[in-house]
Design a protein around this nucleic acid. Structure first.
Lengths: 242, 242
DNA sequence: CGAACTTTTGACAAGCATCAACACGTGTGG
DNA sequence: CCACACGTGTTGATGCTTGTCAAAAGTTCG
């Protein structure tokens, strides 16, 4: 368990998005014991049903969280990017309820649950920041329910693009108008509850109308206002303000 | 702020579902300062955009949490019943992202966030129990995403019936085969992403096949195995084991 | 008893899934 | 260097599924 002092800064940045931490709090976060894992695209970080004595924090790259639903395939229930705390569930509770799989190659910090618990006992401000982070994550899940349950295909696709862009911008990964989208059209379909063909049609129509441009896995948002309108996107649910 | 010693036991029962608490922990939970509010059916407990210095705990009755989605109506994103902690979001973060509205008349305890924070600093076991509860709630949101995104109408309706039954049973409200369903077919439709007509057809077909019976707002599950199969229900996501 | 709400049923149209075929880029091996 | 396979994106045709509309029957409550 080597301690690489600087590698946890994405976690700290995430916590400071929504909470104010003092110097000792910050130092304690960065001093958390951890191992840095290199995960290849497609590899699993967490598997449903398994338990782990550690939490994981995304340091770089993208991952998706999914569930397998009977014989009806896969539903992606969330996307993780830099700074995200993934799956305390399988360590605080008895087993993971979903799978987390790398979309790109990632660097992931593995932190013993014990250390996180000790930290939150010693440093209430950090505990509260983690609480705020968890509540914000819940809010994202709720928005996804609304997205899948009530929006039409174009709206769903536009909405997930807005979310990816806003979250990447908040994590300082990108400029607001640029958005990494490391999911193919089948992945996007599994995330928004659509057949891949209709993801294609939605993306194509957004492109033809000049709202977005595509360059491989990157998306350029040429008309943010229009994309927000089509996706009925209200960033409040991301709780990005402190 | 009157302190009614015994009225918080549903909260304690909820926390002890997934965590082991000692005597002093239990006493501290029950001693939380609170006010008991009587809420009429249809009244709002939390409104989107508002902030509150208090958390709320359901003591009795049912409530739903919903979001309004553009001009496409309402999406119910969750149901709250006895023992549920509702909306720390609007007190830990800056504003509520969704509305919580009573389905039946309810009794709700209003607890100052300050008191909850102090409790979790003083009693790490309680803090961890609340953490476990929040993680389990997240897991439910994920399952709802999968339910709406990937199951057919019969499956969606069967699944929500299974969940309501299992959660009520865990809260010791009902026998496993009986289930209070204080939502009309329009509500159920808004919860599972279906038009109300098809909720009706799904319920009717389940009844005709002898899987369920309906008696007003109560549902009798005559063939649990069949309902579980149709709804592809795996109770693990509720994390009801300790 | 009547009014308002909810459930039920039917008819119809629209939307989305499915299937199929082709295009395009990339990497691999002959 | 070309041929090929593979993954991904694109497009069209078709039909089931689900939403919409409408009206009647049942229920609850004043």
């Amino acid at each position: 368990m080597e301690s690489q002092i600087s590698s946890l800064w994405p976690l700290l940045a995430k916590l400071e998005l929504r909470s104010r931490l003092g110097g000792p709090d910050r130092a304690a976060v960065l001093a958390l014991p951890h191992m840095v894992l290199a995960i290849g695209a497609g590899e699993y970080i967490v598997r449903e049903g398994e338990q782990s004595p550690s939490c994981y924090v995304m340091l770089s790259g993208f991952a998706q969280r999914h569930k397998l639903v009977g014989d009806r395939g896969r539903q992606i229930v969330g996307v993780h990017l830099e700074g995200d705390i993934i799956d305390c569930t399988s360590s605080v509770l008895e087993a993971a309820d979903s799978n987390v799989q790398a979309l790109t190659s990632c660097r992931v910090a593995e932190i013993p649950l014990e250390a996180l618990i000790n930290l939150s006992v010693d440093r209430p401000a950090v505990a509260r920041a983690m609480w705020a982070d968890a509540l914000a994550e819940m809010s994202v899940f709720r928005e996804w329910i609304a997205n899948i349950g009530r929006r039409d295909p174009r709206g769903r696709v536009a909405h997930i693009l807005c979310e990816m862009s806003a979250r990447q911008h908040a994590a300082n990964v990108r400029q607001p108008q640029f958005c990494r989208m490391p999911m193919n059209q089948e992945d996007i379909g599994d995330a928004v509850g659509l057949a891949p063909v209709h993801v294609n049609r939605a993306l194509k129509s957004l492109e033809l109308e000049g709202v977005i441009s595509r360059e491989g896995q990157d998306i350029v948002i040429d008309d943010w206002e229009a994309l927000v309108r089509i996706g009925d996107f209200n960033p409040d649910y991301l709780h990005l303000a402190a």
